[in-house]
């Protein structure tokens, strides 16, 4: 009987410590990210279905070529530069992911100055990304000078009902998926600012560890991860 009890207490599932070897908060962040990944998966499934529908020979309107739609770059008017601007956005997001993980690494060393420096850079990166996205959306909504005639009406740019680029679902899915991702970035920036203020005021120094930086870092990397797939499906393919 007692032997059995000893054996049980060695099992990771016998209670008293986390079987996953991480704190409760970090584990719940992982669970949240998993559910959030499901949400994005369903959005990308909807995107794929609509795109396959428009690719059919019988479809009334073809899915537009992304290189013909997203080919603008700030201050370079009249030049066709497909993919360049989104590649810049990808670079900004990957770089802000790096500064985030550098903040986590500084947190392991309990180096308050380094943590706040890298958190600040991460916030700047997030704001830069959001600004790029705002510019991209503006260009997309305004559309070209020429417009396109659909059913006898000249259409400029895009809204949720009609757009000059292709089927209505093209603009709808662009707004929903990049908008939902942008909203995640915005939430991430707000969370990062909260953490930055806490780091500055010494909350985590008093606590003795910087685990909150790690938790928000997980969220921030997830946002970067989602962008990898948004970039692949909306701009590359």
């Amino acid at each position: 009987m007692s032997e059995l009890a000893v054996q049980n207490s060695n099992s990771p599932w016998s209670g008293g410590k986390s079987p996953f070897n991480v704190s409760y908060g970090k584990l719940m962040m992982w669970i949240f990210l998993l559910s959030d990944a499901f949400t994005f998966s369903s959005l990308l499934t909807a995107y794929g279905c609509q795109r396959f529908l428009a690719a059919s020979d019988f479809a009334p309107m073809k899915w537009p070529d992304p290189s013909k739609v997203f080919n603008h770059f700030p201050f370079l008017h009249g030049m066709e530069l497909p993919l360049l601007f989104v590649s810049l956005m990808t670079f900004i997001l990957i770089f802000s992911s790096v500064t985030m993980v550098l903040a986590v690494e500084a947190g392991h060393r309990n180096d308050k100055k380094d943590v706040s420096y890298y958190m600040f850079l991460t916030i700047i990166g997030g704001i830069a990304f959001l600004s790029c996205q705002a510019w991209e959306w503006t260009k997309f909504i305004q559309g070209s000078h020429e417009g396109r005639i659909i059913d006898g009406v000249k259409v400029f740019g895009a809204n949720l009902n009609i757009n000059e680029y292709g089927p209505a679902a093209f603009a709808d899915l662009f707004f929903i998926v990049t908008g939902f991702h942008g909203f995640h970035v915005l939430s991430g920036v707000v969370l990062n600012i909260v953490i930055y203020v806490n780091v500055q005021s010494g909350t985590y120094e008093r606590r003795g560890h910087y685990e909150m930086v790690e938790k928000v870092g997980l969220y921030w990397h997830f946002v970067d991860l989602v962008w990898v797939f948004v970039f692949t499906f909306f701009y590359l393919i």
Partner: peptide
């Protein structure tokens, strides 16, 4: 492109999110 996206996500999740160094119970659950 999709394959390269998967490779990128391996490094983001594995290194940046530290998944490579977590216990297998946690990483397999995700």
């Amino acid at each position: 492109f999709i394959g390269l996206g998967v490779v990128k996500s391996y490094f983001i999740v594995g290194i940046f999110m530290h998944m490579k160094y977590e216990v297998v119970r946690l990483s397999s659950m995700i």
